[in-house]
Design a protein around this nucleic acid. Structure first.
Lengths: 202, 202
DNA sequence: CCAGTTGTGTACCGATCGATCCGGAAGTGC
DNA sequence: GCACTTCCGGATCGATCGGTACACAACTGG
């Protein structure tokens, strides 16, 4: 294994990769995968295209990195929700997390994981499938968590964890679409509250 | 004004414009505005591009005609819902209409008015705005109808018609996104039923 | 100082985009 | 039969797409 160098060999990178990835995330979030061109991306990132290719790979590879960044940043409420001690707490944190993330000031509206490629041309099918799998993984994690809640007696015996997870995802998706369409956090908070009233809903 | 001719002058059109528009609608519904190329469209419509330009106009004009066709066909439940005698009836027909339309066999899944351009690049911004306005008009019509229901005593006095309309649109959008992601009508029917339980929800 | 390594900047690539051009086809009316 | 009109088919257009090539820059280590 290489001896630890005092600093790496070669020309030092002239940009902050983290900051560039953050900028790329916002472009994909606002314009979608197909609507974001390499020119849009590199201008927002403040680097040129050979630097983008060297640091992040091609457009698809960049998008995958952006999705990870989004999952750990704006969409981290997903993991936080699962850690809640009750099923109602899980749903509350999840849906309120969607609302907060979808309506942050200085960020694009909506949810990148939903809107970057809900539908697509053939060329972007791999991205559309990636995002469908990302959303479905969220639903699977919710199902598992609600099963655990049911086993712990935290849900009525007749409650179907799959239906409950589907309900939470449906409301969450609806909230994200409304936000993308211009609805504010204030517009949507009462909708979130209503959706969580009468727990469990299914 | 021209005398009524026994038949029009010039070479007769070699395709059914209505059938071609129906084919174009499915392409935009499945692939989105940006994801649908002229090649995709003309191949599905069974005509060549000069025929498409002659009969329907450019890509944007074709899309506008497709949206009208969609509104009067698969999305006609919007107008049908407004004609229901009660607020609950309106919401029930509206959301179940979304579910039915978003999960029809032999049709793309989801809602064209939501997914064809929820986000976009700059070139398609006029289409994104067109669809946002189309959805917002639906919400406005629901608000007006719920105001009417409140005035008629069909809703509790404290009910906010705007919130109620927002709730119906949110659930409807969530249902459409779930369907686009692969959920079936059977998966989603209980979610629709749950969303309509405990009326009015806000 | 120079070789080697890594990064940057600009030009350029083939492919595809939306849109138009133009010759020929299929009709009507005189 | 021919002029005129409308439609079809294929070629072509300029612009932009995602991606690569190559010369030069900025560093390290010997």
């Amino acid at each position: 294994m290489d001896r630890q160098r005092s600093s790496p060999v070669g020309r030092p990178r002239g940009f902050d990769a983290g900051a560039a990835l953050e900028k790329a995330m916002r472009v994909f979030w606002e314009h979608g995968y197909e609507g974001a061109s390499l020119t849009d991306l590199t201008q927002a990132m403040g680097i040129n295209r050979t630097s983008m290719y060297a640091a992040f790979g091609n457009k698809e590879e960049l998008f995958r990195k952006v999705l990870n960044h989004y999952t750990e940043g704006p969409a981290s409420y997903g993991a936080e929700a699962l850690a809640e001690p009750t099923a109602l707490g899980v749903a509350t944190v999840y849906i309120n997390g969607t609302l907060r993330s979808a309506t942050m000031p200085d960020y694009p509206a909506g949810c990148l994981g939903l809107q970057a490629s809900l539908v697509s041309g053939e060329d972007a099918r791999v991205i559309r499938d990636l995002l469908a799998a990302w959303r479905d993984e969220n639903r699977t994690l919710l199902i598992d968590r609600f099963r655990q809640a049911a086993a712990a007696g935290d849900l009525p015996p007749a409650t179907d964890p799959e239906l409950l997870a589907r309900y939470v995802m449906t409301v969450s998706n609806g909230i994200a679409v409304q936000a993308a369409g211009g609805a504010t956090r204030a517009d949507l908070q009462p909708i979130v509250d209503a959706a969580l009233r009468n727990w469990p809903p299914v």
